[in-house]
Each structure stands twice: as structure tokens, then as C-alpha cells.
């Protein structure tokens, strides 16, 4: 474990708590893409189900359980408790266009052609694109509540911090995970535009608004 990864994971944890806080305090899931959240459930369940047969560490186990549970809980909040506050008419990204190509990529690029390894690859590819429905929604509405932008910033920081972690591990352990690195670079790049607006507006105390 190095600091980049630790802070990356903590940032990921923070993003979940920010999202839960946003839903609770505003009693609404307005501005949150249900499709993105549903993709995260698929990502975490397919990747972290290995807790059933693989023991890595207590840290690893607790985090995996937390991410599976919290993503399912958020989906429950959106679908049941705060259902009326979710407007499907602006959450229109076509998810099937992501899942198909990701499944194909997972079949081609994996470390072993077994069910669990292909599933792992699929979860990595899917995670890298899972934020797209959310960013698409942001683009459509052109603005976001400040708390929602903090959620996205924490989520983006999580994957961004994994990049120095991989560089560090390459030099200290001599290991590279090309699938995770490639997907991670793509995922971080998707946030570039968001981060630019976030740092030039929200951090300066202004409202997050995209130029028309």
C-alpha cells in the first residue's frame, strides 16, 4: 500500500458519503444519473464478488463489502425512497452502447480466459465508462448543485490518484497491470473537462455552470 492508493481509496469512500449526504439533506436524487449508479453496482458486484473465494487483507475485504453494499443502497434510495425526485427524461444516455463493447473488450483483453477473469476485465472496462451517463446528464442540464460537483470531484480524484500509484508500483515492485492502467487513464481523461470547470468555478465559490 502506498499513499497514492490509500488517498485514492479514501477519496472513493468520501465520494460515496458525499453522495449519500446530498440525497439525505436535499431529500432528492435530482441531478444524479440512475444509469451511472446502476453501472457502479454492476461494476462492484462483478469485481468484488471474489471476496467469496479470495482473501487478500482485512482492508481489502472491508472496502469491497462497503462498495458493494453502498452502491446497492444508493440504487435502492433512487429507485424506491426518492423515486419521484428522479427524472428519467434527462437520464438518456444509451447504456447498451457501453456494455456491448466492454463485454467484447473483456473477452479479448484479460489475464486468463476464465469466467472470473473475464468478469474482472469487464468490470474494469465498465468502470472506466460508467461515469458517462452522469457527465452526459450534466452536459444536458448545463449546471449542477455544488454538492453533486463535490461528489464527482472526489470520484474523479480516486482514479486520478491511482495513476501515480501505478507509476510508483512500477518502480518499486516492477509490476504493471496494463488492463487497469489503460482503463484508468481513459477514465481519468473523461473527467478532464469536468475538472477544468470545477476548479475554475466551484473552487472559486461560484455555481457550476457549463458554457452554453
Amino acid at each position: 500500500m502506498n499513499l497514492f492508493r490509500l488517498f485514492g481509496d479514501l477519496s472513493h469512500l468520501a465520494s460515496i458519503f458525499i453522495l449519500l449526504h446530498k440525497i439525505r439533506t436535499t431529500r432528492s436524487c435530482r441531478g444524479i444519473s440512475f444509469k451511472t449508479q446502476a453501472l457502479y453496482v454492476a461494476v462492484f458486484v462483478s469485481r468484488y464478488l471474489d471476496i467469496l473465494w479470495e482473501w487478500v487483507s482485512l482492508y481489502n475485504f472491508v472496502m469491497k463489502v462497503f462498495f458493494i453494499a453502498s452502491s446497492c443502497f444508493i440504487l435502492y434510495l433512487m429507485k424506491m425512497k426518492y423515486r419521484p425526485t428522479h427524472d428519467p427524461s434527462i437520464d438518456t444516455f444509451r447504456v447498451e452502447f457501453l456494455v456491448g463493447p466492454c463485454a467484447l473488450l473483456a473477452l479479448i483483453f484479460n489475464y486468463k480466459f476464465t469466467f472470473t477473469e473475464v468478469l474482472w476485465s469487464l468490470s474494469i472496462f465498465l468502470e472506466s465508462l460508467a461515469i458517462l451517463p452522469q457527465l452526459f446528464m450534466l452536459q444536458r442540464t448545463g449546471e449542477a448543485e455544488t454538492i453533486t460537483t463535490h461528489y464527482l470531484a472526489a470520484l474523479g480524484a480516486y482514479r486520478a490518484l491511482y495513476i501515480p500509484n501505478w507509476i510508483y508500483r512500477y518502480f518499486s515492485e516492477g509490476v504493471v497491470d496494463p488492463i487497469a492502467v489503460t482503463a484508468g487513464l481513459v477514465q481519468t481523461a473523461l473527467y478532464a473537462d469536468f475538472f477544468y470547470v470545477y476548479f475554475t468555478t466551484v473552487i472559486q465559490g461560484q455555481k457550476f455552470e457549463l458554457p452554453a
Partner: peptide, 10 residues
């Protein structure tokens, strides 16, 4: 084998 997945990463 230097190319493999890191089982400890989340």
C-alpha cells in the same frame, strides 16, 4: 511475470 492484475487493488 510482470504483467498481471494487482489483486490487492480495489
Amino acid at each position: 511475470e510482470t504483467l498481471h492484475r494487482q489483486k490487492d487493488e480495489l
